[in-house]
Amino acid sequence: MEIKENIFTNDEIVISIKDLNKSFGKNHVLRDFNLQLKRGESIAVIGKSGSGKSVLIKCIIGLIYPEKGSINVLGQEVTELDHKDLDRLRVKVAFLFQSNALYDSMTVRENLEFPLRRHWVSTTKQEVDELVMEALANVGLAHTIDMMPIELSGGMRKRIALARTLIMKPDIILYDEPTTGLDPITSREISNLMVDIQKKYNTSSIIISHDLSCIKITANKIVMLIEGKNYAEGTYNVLSTSNDVKVKNFYI
């Protein structure tokens, strides 16, 4: 397994979002939203529930199509890709779902093998086994390989979901509320795991979260999404000292 040496951010833009607009009926969730993610960077997007944070990352992965605006991921315009090209792009962009989205009817091994087999990755049985074991070792759950998701605790399921996102060795990981519903200790473990993964594989990430302790550990930068726009941007420390009432509300 190749470990990327460079763990620092550089100026290569891996995700560039310009003037993104998305509405559901009369509910205009994203209004001219802009964001740029550099290679190796971690950006946390915070905002109230229903403010369009999850919609934003689902637009990035092509699960939801915006009405207007541009989403450029690794040099490709997501809204213009056909199904095959979108699938190819999704090999490089992983998504950690809020509810983990582990397939209930499959074992942990089958859950991890699923993206490998479905993305037509030409690997032998031995290579698949090695990749599965490596992904599980990364999250410290190699012993659960033949267990069903229902047999695992919430924290373990989150780790397995994280292992599944890693199996394709993505360039970018999109985290949708990675610590929601977890106790503070498990939440911290998951946050540390996210940092370890980023260091090991030099991934770039967008993290949707309400959990400030997770954001403090994992994000280089915070974007505050209010009324569909990027209301404020900055590091954790810069925003925590802001005098703006709306920004301060998040830090109370």
């Binding site: 689902k58 992965i61 699960l63 699938d87 999704r90 090999v91 992983a94 998504f95 779902f97 809020q98 509810s99 983990n100 989205a101 582990l102 397939y103 209930d104 699923f114 993206p115 479905r118 993305h119 037509w120």
Partner: peptide, 15 residues
């Protein structure tokens, strides 16, 4: 599967 986002997960897994 829909409410636990497994259908979306399938789509991002190239299915």
């Amino acid at each position: 599967m829909k409410v636990t986002e497994q259908i979306d997960a399938m789509e991002v897994s190239g299915t």
